[in-house]
Amino acid sequence: MKKTTSDLGMNRTGIATSPVDSADIIQAAQKRQPSHLGDDSLILKVRQQYAVESDGIGSVPPPTSLKGSNSKPTVFIDKLGERAAFERSGVRLYQGALAKFEVLGSWEGGPTREGLTRILNDELSHFGLVSEVLTKLGADPTAMTPCADVAAVTSMGLPAVVSDPRMNLRDTLHALLVAELTDNAGWEMLIELSRGLGHDTLAERFQLALDAEAEHLTLVRNWLSAGVTLEARATPVPRAEAGPGLTPTV
């Protein structure tokens, strides 16, 4: 069994695995002309055509009451719905990370149980905070808003990495890093939006959440970085040479 992600093994995905066969199929591919003229832009043209005909993925459920009647209230509800959903899914990500931590252990400078648990609890409380705000605004915190859906589609791979038992704690931290990066940007945007709509008190509460998220990001990045550095030190890897050597040879 391989101990780390980057241990040498029998990876067969590159053309260098089978130089004779590869040379043969490359030659055949060069000899045979495509059946139709054009290039990769045709796919994009069809996509554009469908985009023009599309009417979006769905709508924001109408709130019963909302401050600031001269603005479009659904935008705020939509973004709040996105944050609530993201924080809720974040809890599941950290539960998965903790489960891996328990069975696989950590490394010097790596995640601790306390650290992971703290972030998990923060995500849970942020979910609670946004749900409470949604309720106060007369919106339904259980509804899946379009932005929540887009964010979930965007981050579809995150729970896939965390829940895959073949992917280790370092792989999981990579997924958490992606989550924290987008989470930080999400809170920043929500704070700007709140201020713009005159919800200053809300913006202040959201700022506390952003402060916590910024700490999460630092923690996760440092844990991951320590893990990668340590792994690189433990196993000598061939030095990559810059230049034409990167071009596949057959």
Partner: peptide, 16 residues
């Protein structure tokens, strides 16, 4: 026809 217009397989993708 749209998806493969002008497509010739190249190792490492046509972007390589």
């Amino acid at each position: 026809e749209t998806v493969a217009a002008g497509y010739q397989w190249t190792p490492g993708t046509e972007l390589a």
